[in-house]
Nucleic acid binder design. Sequence first.
DNA 1: CTTGGCACTTGCGTTTCCCGAGTGCCAGCC
DNA 2: GGCTGGCACTCGGGAAACGCAAGTGCCAAG
Lengths: 350, 350
Amino acid sequence: MVPPAAEPALNERAQHLLKVLVQRYIRDGEPVGSRTLARDSGLDLSPASIRNVLADLESLGLIAAPHTSAGRVPTPKGYRFFVDTLLTIRPPERDAVRRVEAGLRDDGTPTLALAGVASLLLSELTQLAGVVTVPKREHAAWRQIELLPLGGPRVLAILVFQDGEVQNKVFELERPLPAEALARIAAQLNETFAGRDLHEIRGKLLAEMQQARATMNEQMLAAIGMAERMFVGAPGEQVLLAGEKHLLDFSALGSIDKMRRLFEAFEQKREILGVLDRCVAAEGVQIFIGEESGYRALDECSMVTAPYHADGRVVGVLGVIGPTRMAYDRVVPIVDLTARLMTATLNSRR
Amino acid sequence: MVPPAAEPALNERAQHLLKVLVQRYIRDGEPVGSRTLARDSGLDLSPASIRNVLADLESLGLIAAPHTSAGRVPTPKGYRFFVDTLLTIRPPERDAVRRVEAGLRDDGTPTLALAGVASLLLSELTQLAGVVTVPKREHAAWRQIELLPLGGPRVLAILVFQDGEVQNKVFELERPLPAEALARIAAQLNETFAGRDLHEIRGKLLAEMQQARATMNEQMLAAIGMAERMFVGAPGEQVLLAGEKHLLDFSALGSIDKMRRLFEAFEQKREILGVLDRCVAAEGVQIFIGEESGYRALDECSMVTAPYHADGRVVGVLGVIGPTRMAYDRVVPIVDLTARLMTATLNSRR
DNA sequence: CTTGGCACTTGCGTTTCCCGAGTGCCAGCC
DNA sequence: GGCTGGCACTCGGGAAACGCAAGTGCCAAG
C-alpha cells in the first residue's frame, strides 16, 4: 500500500506485540496493559516480560502511557508503523461490495450526484464521515453548448460534457439578442471548440484575442465574449461530505471544543481539500494519521483516501475521516473498492 | 404576529415579571430566582413578594423549578405566552439588513442556489441552524425544453422554467433517435405545453392518453413517452440546511444523545420538512416551541419560520432552528426580513 | 532471557461533608 | 388585603477523603 520506509529495527516479538496492542486499542479504545497483552497475544509470556518489550516500544516513540499507571496507547508514529507494515487488510464484506456496486452503477446519474452517492456509501459502510472531491470540470472534454434567451438581456448557457455532466449558467448581455443569433453563436462555438476541454479553450481564446480583433467577424467576437462570461465563476473543485454525525461518537470523548473545530473544518472544507489535494498524485489507498495533515482541526483524526480516475487521469479523491483509532483493516478495502468502482463507472461513459 | 389567544388572566405585574424572567433566562441560561428578579425587574418589590407571584405563575404552568432550590425556568407554555403576547421585537440590525440585501439580490442566481444563500445567511446572522425549503417545481411555469442526444440511446432533457431555474435529466430510449427527431419532439412539446406548470401538464397528458392513441401521430406519441420519463423522479420538495454547527453550542449542555438525535433529524430532514409544511398556510412569522413540533428530536428546540412567495403563491418556507431559549426578539425580524427579500427577488423575475 | 515478587503511582468512582441559593410559610406591619 | 422580613428546610454541586484496581519499574532468582 505504501512503500516500507526505513523503520526502526524491531524484532518479531516486538512487532507482534505492537500489532496486538494497536488492534486491541482500536477495538476497545482503552489503554492496553501488560497483563491483557500477556493473555491475548498468544505468545505465552509473563506480563513482566511484556513490560520489558513495552518499555522498548515506548522509548522508540511508538507507544505512550497516558499516565504512570495506565496501559499503553499507540502514538501517531505507532499508528504509522502499524498501517505501513503490520496491517493485514481483509477483503471487503460481501454486503459492502453489493451496496457499493448497486449505488455506483452507471445509470446516467450525473457525476456530481454520483459523488454524493459515493460519499454517502462511504459514510454508511464505515460509520465514519465520508468525503469525496468533485472533479474539476476544467479538464473534461466538452461535447456541446446551447444558448437560450431568458427574456430581456438574460441568457442561459448549457454546457454538456462528454461524460453526460451538465452545467448551467445564467448571465446578462449588454443588449438582448434574438434566439436565432444565439443559436448561430452556439453553433459557432460548438464547431470551433467541441471536444476540447475548458482549459484548452481558454488558452485558445486568449490566442485568438491576441490576433487582430479586426480580422474576426462580428459573430466570432460575440461568441468569444459570451464564452468568457460562461467560464467565469464556473464552480471549482469542491468537497462533498456525508455522515458528519458519526463524528459525534468519538468526539464526545474529547472536548466539545475540539469537536467544534472539526465541524468548522467540515463547513469550510478548505483544509480538508488541502489534504485531499496532496494525495491526488499517489497511487492507491493512502492513510493520513493525526497531525500529519498539518491542520489543527484534524489533530486526532485519520483520513483514508484513494484517488479515482476518468480517461486515465486522476480526477478526484475519495475517502473517509474518522478517529485515529478507526478500524483500518475494514476501512481500507472499502475505500479502495469505492474508488475502483467510481473509476469504472466514470470510464464506462467514455 | 400571532393572533392573541385566550390566555389565562394575568395582571400587569405577573406579565411583567414573566417577561423579565424569560428574557433573563434567555440571556443567561440559568434558572432565575426571586432575588435576581427583585433586583432587575424595576418593580421595587421584595423577593418575598416576587415569590408569591412566581408561585402563581408556576401553578398556571408557565414556569417551573428544575428542583426545589433553584430559580424558575420558563415552560414551553411560558415561552408560548411570552412570544405571543409579551415579545417586543426590535428592528433588524443595519448590518443584517445590508447583508441579506446583498446576498439575495437578483443577479440571475438559480433559485436553488438562492435558497442556499438564504439558509447560510439565516445561520450566520442568528448563530443558529438555518433552514429553507426549496420550492416544488410542480407549480412553476415551464418556459422551454431542449432535448440533446448524448450518444447511444441516451438523451439529455433540459427544462427551463419561467423564473430562470433549470433542471436536467438524463434518460435512455429504447432505440436511439437522431438529433433532428429529438428537436422535432422538443418543438412539439414546447408548442403544446409551454407556459403551463408540470402539474397541469401531467393532467393534460393523461387526458390525451385516454383519447384513442391511434388518432395521434407517431411524433406526438414519442413526445408523450418522453415527457413521462422526464417527469418521473423530478426532485420533490427538499430542505436546505446550514450552520448545524451552531447547535453544538447549546446541545453541549444537554446530553450527547439528544444531540445525536438532532443531527439525525437534520440528516433525514423529513421531520423538519413535516414541521415546515405545516406553516405554509400561515401568514408571516411563526414560532414553534419545543414539543409543539410533535417530533421527539426537536424536543428542546424552537423553530422560527416564515413563508415566502412567488407569483402570489407560497412556494417555500424558511427559518431557523435553535434552542428554545433563543433570542426571539433578534431572530424574528431577521427571519421576517429574509422571507420578504426572498419573495421580492423571486418576483422580480416574473 | 524470563519470571515472580514487591513497592509505588495514579486515575477514578464513592462517600461524606459543607455551603450557597432558593423556597414556602408565617406573623407582623402598613 | 397586600407587602415584607424572618426562619426553617431542601437540594444540587463542589471539595475533600478514601479505597480500589490496574499498571508500572525494578530486582533478584531461576
